[in-house]
Each structure stands twice: as structure tokens, then as C-alpha cells.
Design a protein around this nucleic acid. Structure first.
Length: 776
DNA sequence: GAGTTTGAAACT
DNA sequence: CAGTTTCAAACTC
């Protein structure tokens, strides 16, 4: 931020007024830190302005920074900036303040003012950040309320959401939260500084700031200062791969000693989702509760030692934010290993333990190396993430970070996302590889992320988590499995190395819950798996591609005619049903919740989601509906009707939800939702705004290929696979009987709204599935 | 839970 | 590409 603006001068003036005010003096007296008055400011303090000082910082957000400056002075005085800020503004302040100032100026920051002892949710801040400049001029209480106030509110969600948002926005991969809080005064002011990577101007003052140095890659950092005039509780939340704890510690210590404050450095749990600000003075307030037991797999956060523990002048604990990554890919193995190694070095104990918690080890891979355990966990997560999509770049960053060894906070955003939704959806996430425990909470399947979660969350969650994961569904349907969470494949002869195997088809390793025999689809057989996969792909490049592609944009269409499956949602290759009339899950189209298309070779199609001929017969409608589908194919009409009726009975909602778009509410509507799971990989959703890869297939892709989950690409850049050009099954027809539907996904896509939108998000992995290029 | 049905995947 | 076999999920009892 450039402080050299008229505005800035004004600010300075204001500040000077501040300093001169009685209040200010009073504060100064209280504060161990001596305020430095700006030399050039002579104006008297205006009490009025004090209450609402003009924005000191030019930051966009800024408006609310008034007091921040004030706080700043106190902030981290001990921390000397390696570089003096060249900014005039900074000069105005004492060196002590300079740091903080620079930080503020640098970053678009949000200030959070509140009374001491109250917690500030970084996560929220983060969220704000994603938007533009978050302004937190509200009192902490509010902040808290905001974050945690909601009864059902899960802090993690917030944090995750925020992170996810960040990720989505491409902003901070990691963030650092710094909280200083003074315990003494009730009216502790807290400043929350948020910095978005995008916002950071490398050339700007900020770059000079010490903090910057601390934060290497940090895309975003959150600085929260809760300043008391006296004792200080310092709690830092770091999350961000870029921040090194080691760097931080000295800093913190220093500040602590200087200020005679209490410093408490806590690792923020996943992405700021759980940031706690404690007022050490007398109260320790935890904004968010972290449930150690529950600590999130997804959160990836590590709580170091007792976050809540109070310590005077002592640095209690430092932990790096979870570094958990989701590495999904088989290919990523090496990376994961590295990560694990790094983790051990860094935060280690905690991290590992968490990891363990997060994912049941059992599930983790048979291999059971430490790395593996972590890996598995990550893997599952990773898959999820990939599916989710937001993170492509982000992921790349993470990887880089990982490799670089800077892991703090790797998990951050991505994991956040997961965690956010996870809570709601409970892990039905595919973490296939992830521990079964976490994975399966059937109850959550039905949850609609969109409702519970912020948009970002909603994005992800939906398909993936729920419906499309075949396994999950299945689990869901299975009482036992659900809790166990892990029933997966049941292969006996394929060794789980063929597409018969759902796990394999989905691109995930088999886990304990699987009942497979002689399973080779395990990390220990990674090579074999990859090889086999390649082989299969060589035979059919689309073998691991999602079978159903749907576009969220098609929703409107659904609204128009709920009974018809949007053209955008179709089974890629079509089914070949002969006896099931496409009314049972034997039919992939039906299972996938989409109507049959011209690509289908089915006979006697009665697909409730849309018949091959274009007619839609759903549930009830189907009952009364005249058999448009000719039974010429020898289908037993009676049987069909019976089936239909049964289906309807079984899945009454199907009639309601015939929509293929399960995005928002994936599971429920689908006929198979109750039990079902889509067959292998199933749906890929493409939307203009977001992409949902459902399920497993997203996983597979992600798993197998490190590709980034989502990418916006021009239509013309659409992968062939999606287009269907390369597809074994060419885009057969451009027009469907009803004139709306098009058989091939490709074609469909073309006509889909998404396409019209001109912007498409594609699961990048799709194209890549074919390539399993191992990344040793 | 065992057996049957079904259709995709794999094979020829 | 078509036909056959294999396979495992879906389904039924």
C-alpha cells in the first residue's frame, strides 16, 4: 500500500491527535511500550476522532484502521524490523509501531477491535479477506459471535470456509495469524490484519517489513493484535506454509520479554479455522474449541501443546499448522513421503498424532510406514480436494512448499476446505483411503453442504462427498458399513486391479473396510497399481474418467422440466441395459442419476431420469405414463412397470428429484441415494461457477494424476475427453429426440448453459487420467 | 447371508 | 467390432 497519499497525511494528523489526547496518554502510561510521537504532527488530539480515527492505512479495507495504529504501537515492539520501513507513515511511528504499521499498510488488513479476552476468529477474517478487505471494527464479542455464535456453527467450518474461499480466490495459501492480546484491559483492542497475497505488493513497504520476512510464501497472513495496555497475551496462529515457526518464535519471545507480555503461540488449527485468542490476563477465551479428539483430519491443524494453557512470559507452544496435505496420488508418494519427513522435523509430534487421529491408521495403508499413514490420510483428503476443486494452483503451491520443506501450513487451505465440509458431511468424503472412521458418517451424506456451509464449502461438498462416492453411498445404505464407514469393494478375483473394482475404478486404494481378497490395490503395490492402470488406460483412455458429466448450470433446465435430465448430465458412454429397463442400479445411467441418452444401447429404457428416447418418465409419472419406450425389444413391460413402481416406492423422492443435478443435494433425491452409491466413478460436474467432481471419480483422477482439480478453460480448450472427440464413443448425435438432449457429454456440454457462459470449469484431471505418469 | 440377476469390463 | 466370458455389484429371498 502506498502510504504516500494525501489520505495518509491525514491519517498521520489524526494519529498525532490521538497521541496528544488524554486517553492516549493514559493508555501510554499503561502500556509498557512507549509511544513515539510523530515528529511532524502537531495537531491536538480530537477526542472524537479518537473514537473513530480515520483510516490510517490506505489499505483498501481500511477504513477501519484507526485504532489499529494505536495498537500497533504496542504491537510487537520487540520485534525489530530488519528493514525499516521506508514509508513515511511508518516513520511517523516509533520503530515499535513501525513493524505493525508496516504490516498493516502492507497488507490489507482488517482490524478487529474488541475487548481483551475475546476471541477473534481468524477464519472469519480470512473469509473477509477473500472478499476484499475485511473490516473488523466490531468488537471482539461480535467477532466471536460471528464466528462461533451460531449454535450449529463449527468454527472449523468457518475457518475452513475462509480458507476455501481464499483458495478459491487464489489468494492466500497460507495465512498467519498473529494475535496479541493484552490481558489487562477489558477494552483490549485487537487488530486483525489480513493480508492477501494478491494484496501484497512486493515492492511495497510491506516487503520491508519483518513480518514479510517471516512469511515467505505466505499468501495471506492474519495479524491479530489484541492489545492490552499491560500484560499481553500473545497468541499466534500460524498457518501458512510459508511461515516458519522458528522464525516466529524468536520474534515472539522477544516481544514477550520486551513487553512483559504473555506470549502464547498457538498453532492455528487448520487454516485459521480455529484461531483462538486468549486473554491471558485473566481470562482465556477461546474463540473456537478445538476438539482434540476430533481434530480434524481435514483441518490439518495441529495444536501444539495446550493452546489453552496460559503462560506468563513464556512461549508456551509453537506449533505449525497442520501440514497435512492431501496427497492423493499414487504418484505423489514421494512427495508425501517428503512431507511426512518434513512434518516430523517440524511439528512433528503433534502433526503425526493428529494425522493419526484424523485418519485411522488402519485404514491407512497396509504398508504402514509412518509416511504411509500420513499419506493415506492425506491421500484421502487430497482426493477430496481435488474433487473440490478449488485448489489447483494452490495445490501446486503446496506441493512446492512441501518439497521445499516448508511445510508449515501446507494443509491450510485445502485442508480447510475439506474440513469445513467435512464437519457437515462428515467425512463421507471419500477419503477412501482415509480412515474409515472419519469417512463414514452416513448421516452426513444427506447433508447439503450448501445449506450449512458457506458457499465455498458448498461447492465442494456436494457431489463429491455425498452422492457420488459410491462407496459412501453404499456405506450409507449399509447400517454397519456406515459407521464403519468403510465397506468398499468386495473383489475376489480381480485383485482390485480391474475396473470391476470400485476402488480401483475410483482411483483409490482399497482400505481395510474392503472385503476384497488378494487385493493389490494398495499403496504397497503402488507400482503394480500404476502399471495396471496404465494398461487399462491404454486400452481405454476414458476408463477412469467420470462416467457422468453434469453441469450445475443445467439446474435451471431442471427447473423447467424436472423430469428430464439436463442435457448436461449424461452418462458418457451410455448404458447397455437389457433387462433392468434402466430402472435399477445395474444401469449406470440410472445409478448416476442421469437419464439415458442416445449413446445408450439400452433396451426398454425406462430410466426415471430420462429415457433414451428423450421422454422422461419418472417415478409416479412413469407409472401412469404410457410406455413410450417400445417394448419391441422384448422387454417385459409388466416387469418393468413393476420395477418402476418398486423404485418409486423405494425412492419416492426420485420423482421429486429426478434431477440429475445432485449437486446441491445430491444424495437425497437420487433414487439410489438411500443406498446407493454410484458405481465407480461417477459424476463430474461442471459448472460455470464451480466444479463438483463427484465422487470417486474425481478421486481417481486426482489420485492418479496429480492434475489440478479444476481449471477454467475456454471451450475450445476443452479436453477431448470431455468433448468426446477422443472419446471412444464419439459424440454421436447432436440432437436428441426431444431436441434438447444430447447424447454425448461433449455435445451436451456444448449446449449446456455452462458453455454458454463461456467459462467452464473442468476437472483437469480428467484429461489426465489416462496418464498415470508415476512421479517417483 | 446365500444365491441370483445384471450389465460392465475384459477377453477372444 | 461382435461375441463370449469374467466379474462384482445389485438385487432377491
Amino acid at each position: 500500500m502506498d502510504m504516500d497519499t494525501p489520505e495518509r497525511n491525514q491519517i498521520n494528523t489524526t494519529l498525532s491527535k490521538f497521541e496528544d489526547s488524554p486517553v492516549f496518554n493514559y493508555i501510554n502510561n499503561l502500556s509498557p511500550i512507549k509511544p513515539v510521537k510523530s515528529a511532524h504532527i502537531t495537531q491536538t488530539f480530537n477526542s472524537l476522532t479518537f473514537s473513530s480515527p480515520p483510516s490510517v492505512f490506505t489499505s483498501p479495507h481500511a477504513a477501519s484502521f484507526k485504532e489499529s495504529r494505536f495498537l500497533r504501537r504496542h504491537s510487537l515492539p520487540s520485534v525489530s524490523k530488519p528493514k525499516d520501513s521506508s514509508e513515511d507513515v511508518n516513520k511517523v511511528y516509533s520503530n515499535e509501531g513501525a513493524l505493525a504499521d508496516s504490516t498493516l499498510s502492507q497488507h490489507n488488513s482488517c482490524e478487529l477491535h474488541g475487548s481483551a479476552g475475546q476471541g477473534i476468529s481468524v477464519g472469519d477474517a480470512t473469509i473477509e479477506l477473500s472478499n476484499e478487505q475485511a473490516k473488523f471494527s466490531d468488537e471482539l464479542p461480535q467477532a466471536l459471535q460471528y464466528n462461533c455464535g451460531s449454535p450449529g456453527y463449527d468454527p472449523r467450518l468457518c475457518g475452513d470456509a475462509a480458507n476455501s474461499l481464499l483458495e478459491l480466490s487464489g489468494e492466500a495459501v497460507s495465512d498467519v495469524a498473529y494475535v496479541r492480546d493484552s490481558g489487562k484491559t477489558d477494552s483490549v483492542e485487537a487488530e486483525l490484519h489480513l493480508q492477501g497475497t494478491s494484496q501484497i505488493d512486493p515492492k511495497g513497504e510491506g516487503s520491508d517489513c519483518d513480518w514479510d520476512g517471516l512469511i515467505h510464501n505466505a499468501s495471506a497472513d492474519v495479524l491479530i493484535d489484541a492489545e492490552a495496555f499491560k500484560g499481553l497475551a500473545f497468541k499466534g496462529l500460524m498457518h501458512g506454509s510459508s511461515i516458519r515457526l522458528s522464525d516466529f518464535v524468536p520474534l515472539l519471545q522477544q516481544s514477550t520479554s520486551n513487553n512483559d507480555q504473555k506470549t502464547h503461540l498457538v498453532d492455528s488449527v487448520a487454516s485459521g479455522s480455529e484461531h483462538e485468542i486468549h486473554n491471558h490476563c485473566s481470562e482465556l477465551v477461546s474463540v473456537t474449541d478445538i476438539d482434540p479428539t476430533q481434530d480434524n483430519l481435514a483441518n490439518g491443524s495441529l495444536m501444539t501443546s495446550n493452546p489453552n494453557e496460559k503462560m506468563d512470559n513464556e512461549l508456551v507452544s509453537v506449533t505449525h499448522r497442520g501440514i497435512r496435505r492431501r496427497c492423493l496420488d499414487f504418484e505423489m508418494a514421494s512427495v508425501r513421503k517428503k512431507i511426512s519427513d518434513d512434518n516430523s522435523n517440524i511439528g512433528s509430534s503433534t502433526t503425526q498424532s493428529e494425522v493419526r487421529n484424523a485418519a485411522n491408521e488402519k485404514q491407512l495403508l497396509p504398508a504402514k510406514r509412518n509416511a504411509n499413514s500420513q499419506r493415506s490420510i492425506l491421500r484421502g483428503i487430497g482426493l477430496h480436494l481435488n474433487a473440490l476443486a478449488t485448489v489447483k494452483d494452490h495445490k501446486g503451491k503446496q506441493n512446492e512448499n512441501v518439497t521445499s520443506g516448508d511445510q508449515v501450513g501446507l494443509a491450510s487451505s485445502t485442508s480447510l476446505l475439506l474440513s469445513a465440509c467435512q464437519e457437515h458431511q462428515r467425512l463421507s468424503i471419500l477419503s477412501v483411503s482415509v480412515s474409515s472412521e472419519r469417512e463414514t458418517d452416513p448421516s452426513d451424506n444427506g447433508v447439503q453442504p450448501s445449506e450449512d456451509c458457506p458457499q465455498a464449502l458448498a461447492y465442494m461438498a456436494a457431489d463429491d462427498f455425498n452422492q457420488n462416492s459410491p462407496k459412501k453411498k453404499r456405506r450409507k445404505s449399509e447400517p454397519v458399513g456406515e459407521t464403519e464407514g468403510c465397506k468398499r469393494c468386495n473383489c475376489k478375483k480381480s485383485k482390485c486391479l480391474k475396473l470391476y473394482c470400485e476402488c480401483f475404478a475410483a482411483g483409490v486404494y482399497c482400505i481395510e473396510p474392503c472385503s476384497c481378497q488378494e487385493c493389490f490395490n494398495k499403496p504397497i503395490h503402488e507400482d503394480t497399481v500404476l502399471q495396471t492402470r496404465k494398461q487399462i488406460e491404454s486400452r481405454n483412455p476414458l476408463a477412469f474418467a467420470p462416467k457422468v458429466i453434469r453441469s450445475a448450470d443445467s439446474v435451471p433446465e431442471v427447473g423447467i422440466d424436472p423430469n428430464k435430465t439436463p442435457a448436461s448430465a449424461r452418462h458418457k458412454r451410455g448404458c447397455n441395459c437389457k433387462k433392468s429397463s434402466c430402472l435399477k442400479k445395474y444401469c449406470e445411467c440410472y445409478q448416476g442419476g442421469v437419464g439415458c441418452s442416445i449413446n445408450c444401447r439400452c433396451e426398454g429404457c425406462k430410466n426415471a431420469f430420462g429415457r433414451k428416447d428423450g421422454s422422461a418418465s419418472i417415478g409416479i409419472e412413469g407409472e401412469t405414463e404410457e410406455e413410450t419406450e417400445t417394448s419391441d425389444k422384448g422387454v417385459d413391460e409388466k416387469a418393468i412397470q413393476k420395477t418402476e413402481i418398486q423404485n418409486i416406492e423405494d425412492h419416492p423422492e426420485s420423482s421429486l428429484v429426478s434431477t440429475p443435478l445432485q449437486l446441491s443435494r445430491p444424495l437425497l433425491p437420487m433414487p439410489f441415494s438411500s443406498k446407493g452409491k454410484p458405481p465407480r466413478s461417477f459424476v463430474t460436474t461442471i459448472t460455470g461457477s464451480g466444479y463438483f467432481a463427484s465422487q470417486k471419480h474425481a478421486m481417481p483422477n486426482s489420485l492418479w494424476s496429480q492434475s489440478k482439480p479444476f481449471q477454467t478453460i475456454p471451450d475450445d480448450e476443452m479436453p477431448e475427453i470431455l468433448r468426446g472427440d477422443s472419446s471412444p464413443i464419439a459424440c454421436i448425435k447432436t440432437s436428441s429426440p426431444n431436441g434438447k438432449r444430447i447424447s454425448s457429454p461433449n455435445c451436451e456440454m456444448g449446449s449446456s448453459p455452462a458453455r454458454r457462459g463461456g467459462r467452464k470449469l473442468i476437472l483437469q484431471s480428467i484429461p489426465s487420467f489416462p496418464s498415470l505418469t508415476p512421479h517417483p
